[in-house]
Design a protein around this nucleic acid. Sequence first.
DNA 1: ATGTGTGAATGGATTCACAGCG
DNA 2: CGCTGTGAATCCATTCACACAT
Lengths: 218, 218
Amino acid sequence: MREDKEIKKHCPCVSEIITRRLSLYLRCLLMVNREGDEYISSRELAKRFHLNADQIRKDLSYFGTFGKRGVGYNIEAIVVKLKEVLGLTHVYNVVIAGAGNLGIALADYPRINRDSFKIVALLDRDNRKVGTKTKTGIPIYHISELEEKIEELNVRMGIITVPVDAAQNIADRFVESGIRGIMNFAPVRIQVPPYIKTISADFKSQLEVLAYYVSKLM
Amino acid sequence: MREDKEIKKHCPCVSEIITRRLSLYLRCLLMVNREGDEYISSRELAKRFHLNADQIRKDLSYFGTFGKRGVGYNIEAIVVKLKEVLGLTHVYNVVIAGAGNLGIALADYPRINRDSFKIVALLDRDNRKVGTKTKTGIPIYHISELEEKIEELNVRMGIITVPVDAAQNIADRFVESGIRGIMNFAPVRIQVPPYIKTISADFKSQLEVLAYYVSKLM
DNA sequence: ATGTGTGAATGGATTCACAGCG
DNA sequence: CGCTGTGAATCCATTCACACAT
């Protein structure tokens, strides 16, 4: 799709598909890490999590060579490396536009506000919600304060959970305010400049993909 | 990844990446449909929604030839065709395991319970929730009734929003009960037989992908 | 011996380019 | 002449296979 190309001009990085796997490897490695082994081979990792050993090695090789031949990868070391590659050594402040059920569910999502991400605010147009906090203490501000809060709280990512008609407007305001990554839960394709990364997390669209397979698998 | 191959053996269908675009085209066409034009060309559609005209034509051509040369596609006709291809002519009954914030947010998600999907039940282990209903009236049953409700309500898709430690167990019970499509929101890779389609909708993993781009785009 | 790292081979997906229909 | 439908060309992702390090 067109904007994947565009983004590449601005970002000489590995493809999104590989990035997703790196995130997955990190998660798997953190799981085996608790078991206390020092090394794991690509084969072993693949067997444990139904992955592909060749692919693991190739994916990792894009970022350097850190395996020990005949032994495997040092788990600690590769965890550190993956975090570094994924940019998880910083903390990213995040706002959520839309304090409906979904926005609040995401804000209070277990273990999100640890390590690399910090959801610092929700924004909503409903005055009854404004001034309150979620269960885990994340404040809700009025949507008119969007630009101000992004600036003040040093926000770098935005999540859109507003109704579909408002989504593009929120995206525009995010971009205008300097946000570089947007996760969009509304069932529209939002349009942003090529240097902005968007991820579509639209629930209905995913159900439709599932429908396709379920209808064919009978 | 390995299981994509496996699923192909069981399902001679077009790839997931194309399926996602078909779902997207459908959404776009439903939007232009409200404007009353009868025909739209691939170029026009691409321009309006930042898509790729060549790709639209190729994607559609896998399912037959329904454009008029020199004119474009009949919007109504192609909407019908896309719904048919995606399997959206049936209604799919869906259960959600886990009636936490996220589960309830998804159950009450606007406009989901129309057309092709019907969320018929939530399941939870918390007895205080069991017997209640969501705002839109979807009942919550005890998780021990999972198998029974799937059978009784003729459920074909399952959504997992339970905590990470319980996710695999729920997946196993879904599969055992005859569910063929699973959407998993828990941050683990669940393991299922090759004839089951799973979609991972893990929030944290998506944020990590975004982090990668945001960290590089500076 | 074992398992990495990587070129080479294969397989898909995207884009190009144009013949042919309306 | 415009736009579809589609082979051919290109680009990217995955898998294979093996030289080499430990």
